[in-house]
Amino acid sequence: MLSVLLASGVANGLIYGLIALGVVVLSKAANAFNFSQGDVMALGGFASYSVIVSMGYGPVAAVPIVVIVALFMGLLSYLLLRPLMKAEHAVALLIATIGLSFVIKGMIRLVWGGRGDYLAVPPLISGPPLILFDGKIIVPLQYLLMMGGALLMIMLFTLFFRFTRLGLFMRSVADNPRAAQIVGIPTHLVLCCAMVLSLIVSAVAGFLLAPATLIYPDMGFALFLKGFAAAIVGGVTSLPGAVVGGILLGVTELLVSGYISSQAQELSAFVLIFVALIFFPRGLFGGRKSRSV
C-alpha cells in the first residue's frame, strides 16, 4: 500500500535526515566530512544495548550515557584530526576518518562480540501502534518516537545555528577560518564543538534507531553513506536540506522496494548520490559558497 510505504519511507527518511544532520553540522561548522560518523552512530546503538539490556536500566538512563560516549568520541576525534582540519588537507582528513571508522568498528567488535553477531535492542516504547485514517496508515510507536526524536533534534539545531553565539561562530569559522581567527573567534574551540555536536547527533540517532533494527558492528558505514547521500542531495551546508534529503532518500528507497524490487532498494542510495553529485553538486538547497569545479 502506498501509504504504508510512504509512512515507513518518511520514518526511515527522518533517521537518514538525522544522520545527514550530523554530516551537515560538521560540514557547516568545519567544512569537513567525518567518515567515522556512522560508526559512532553504531556505537550509540551498542551503548544503549549495554545500558538497557546488559545492565537493565531503562531507556531514559541510556540517553545521558550515549551522549557522554559521543562527547568522549568527539573530543578524541577532534584531538586526533585537528592538524588535518584545514581546507587543503580535505583528502587527508577523509582518509584519516576512514581509518578512525575502522578503529571504532574494531573496538565495537572486540567489546560486543564477533563478526556477524546481531544484537537486538528492545523497543523504547511498548504499546499498540498508532493507527490513523481507519487503518490505512499504521505507524509503530517506535517509529513515532524516532520521528519525534529526529524532529526535535532538527529543531534544536536549527535554533542553535541561528540564534546562539556558538552557532554563529561555527558558521563564521566554516566560511572563513582565518578571518574568524582574526576577529577573535576561538577557532579551535569552535571546531572541537562542531565535531562533538555532530557526533552527539549521530550517537543519538543510533540510540533512536537501534530498537527498530538488529544492530551489528558493520552497520555504521552503510548507514553513514545513506545519511551522506541525503546530505549531498539536500545541500551539504543546509540543515533543512539534510532533512529533506533524508526524507527523499527514505521515500525513494521504499518506493523502489515496493514497486521495483527489494534488492534495488540498496542501489537507490548510490544512484541518488551519483546523480546528485553530477547534476547538482551544491544540492537542492545549495550553499552560498561555490566549490570550484
Binding site: 584519516a96 576512514i98 581509518g99 578512525l100 571508522s101 575502522f102 578503529v103 571504532i104 568498528k105
Partner: peptide, 9 residues
Amino acid sequence: EIIFGSMLI
C-alpha cells in the same frame, strides 16, 4: 581493524 585503522591515521 583497530591496527589498520590506527596505521592509516
